[in-house]
Design a protein around this nucleic acid. Structure first.
Length: 404
DNA sequence: CAGACGTGGGA
DNA sequence: TTCCCAAGTCT
């Protein structure tokens, strides 16, 4: 069995490399800003999802200096929908560090110290942007190498071993192309399912292929998906300017620094029938039929949506704000919360309370029948990859409200 | 090391 | 529908 060689892989890459917006053409000098931006966006994210965001960021923030000078909220808003929002916070912090230092560090070790740049990204930038002989071991490379060597150790324990194998293959010449070639190989031929071994430049040296077991690598332990959590979300629509009540989540943790309509806590045993106890302000809350479902990486979530029209003079509660529907696309709303707003604002909006109600008890009488009928038609898809979707859904003129 | 941390698309 | 996953990082 012949040994795998970088030369064979590079020859394949020269014929089959993918053209990607952030990738320099042969002979061009890679731009560290574009390399870094794309690598961060591509962390745990598909190429298709990244493309429109990459273009948007280059337009909004043409240079690392421009990104550093931007307000954090502008960065969060531009990132909204891409997920893993700590990446956006770290991206901004990293841009400021780089701007302060004058430029990107040009070594793996220097890059590794920056926020949001871990072992993989440091290697990738060092190799691609600075021509350093660094290994860039991502999920693609883990799959390729685990098959090439038929590594029985499951991930993530096999990582150190894979890194050594990979580093040993990195050529002195064209290390950046080698890194990208390895990832292209994993993305286009050495895929998780049905790898195209017949087209692979490393078919002969591949131990997994020799045994016909290529699809069984990499070995990995499957992780469970967490238990269902439930909660209530409150969409208050203000008369006059059609503004929606929003708040900003805490800077750290789940959806950190992102915007949302106020919600209850999200708990496995939350009872939506008692949702009004968690309402952010006193109003004629109408519980909408159906629930908004969302899957996070580590748990699924179901939010029951309450909707109310409030008077034009309503002041936002402490720490909250009213944002006009037409300006919602400037808010850093994550996908889950776009679903909530779409669910609330796509249907008829209830009448405002005729007059401010006397203070008394929360309106516990409102919750409808225990088994609400299914909503007419499917819940609108979230805007996500096309930020304009939210604008379309939410800017839509409110449905005429009948007077009794 | 294990768990937190989003989202959308494909099988 | 359900499951798996896609160029990981941080604590």
């Amino acid at each position: 069995m012949p040994a795998a060689s970088a030369a064979d892989l590079l020859a394949w890459y020269d014929r089959h490399r993918r053209a990607l917006p952030w990738r320099a053409l042969p002979g061009e000098t890679p731009d560290p800003y574009r390399v870094w931006l794309s690598e961060v966006m591509l962390q745990q994210t598909t190429v298709a999802a990244v493309k429109p965001y990459f273009e948007k960021f280059l337009t909004l923030f043409p240079s690392v200096a421009a990104l550093a000078a931007a307000p954090e909220e502008a960065v969060m808003s531009a990132w909204a929908g891409l997920g893993y929002y700590s990446r956006a916070r770290n991206l901004h912090a990293c841009a400021r560090a780089v701007a302060a230092a004058g430029d990107f560090p040009d070594t793996e070790e220097g890059l590794r110290k920056l926020p949001g740049i871990g072992a993989y990204t440091a290697g990738a930038i060092a190799a691609i942007a600075f021509d350093r002989p660094a290994a860039a071991v991502d999920g693609n490379v883990e799959r390729v190498m685990s098959r090439l060597h038929a590594i029985e150790t499951p991930l993530p324990a096999a990582r150190a071993q894979i890194r050594l194998f990979t580093q040993a293959l990195v050529p002195e010449r064209r290390p950046g192309d080698f890194a990208q070639a390895l990832m292209d190989l994993g993305a286009t031929l050495c895929t998780p399912k049905r790898p195209a071994c017949a087209l692979c430049p490393w078919m002969r040296p591949c131990r997994a292929r020799a045994e016909g077991l290529q699809e069984t690598f990499p070995r990995k332990v499957k992780k469970e998906k967490g238990i269902l959590r439930k909660g209530a979300a409150f969409v208050a629509l203000r008369a006059g300017d059609e503004a929606v009540l929003l708040r900003t989540r805490p800077a750290e943790g789940l959806l950190g620094a992102m915007a949302e309509p106020p919600t209850s806590a999200w708990l496995p045993d939350y009872d939506p029938a008692k949702g009004l106890l968690d309402a952010p302000l006193d109003a004629r809350w109408k519980r909408l039929p159906g629930v908004v479902k969302h899957g996070f990486t580590h748990f699924p979530l179901e939010l029951t949506v309450f909707l109310a029209r409030v008077a034009a003079e309503t002041k936002p509660p402490e720490g909250m704000r009213f944002t006009p529907r037409a300006a919602l696309d400037t808010e850093p709303l994550p996908g889950a919360m776009k679903k909530v707003l779409a669910h609330a604002l796509s249907g008829p909006v209830p009448l405002a309370a005729p007059a401010p109600r006397p203070p008394p008890e929360p309106d516990l009488a409102t919750p409808p029948e225990p088994e609400p009928p299914p909503r007419r038609g499917p819940i609108p898809k979230p805007a996500s990859s096309r930020p304009s979707d939210l604008a379309r859904i939410v800017k839509k003129a409110p449905k005429p409200v009948r007077t009794r």
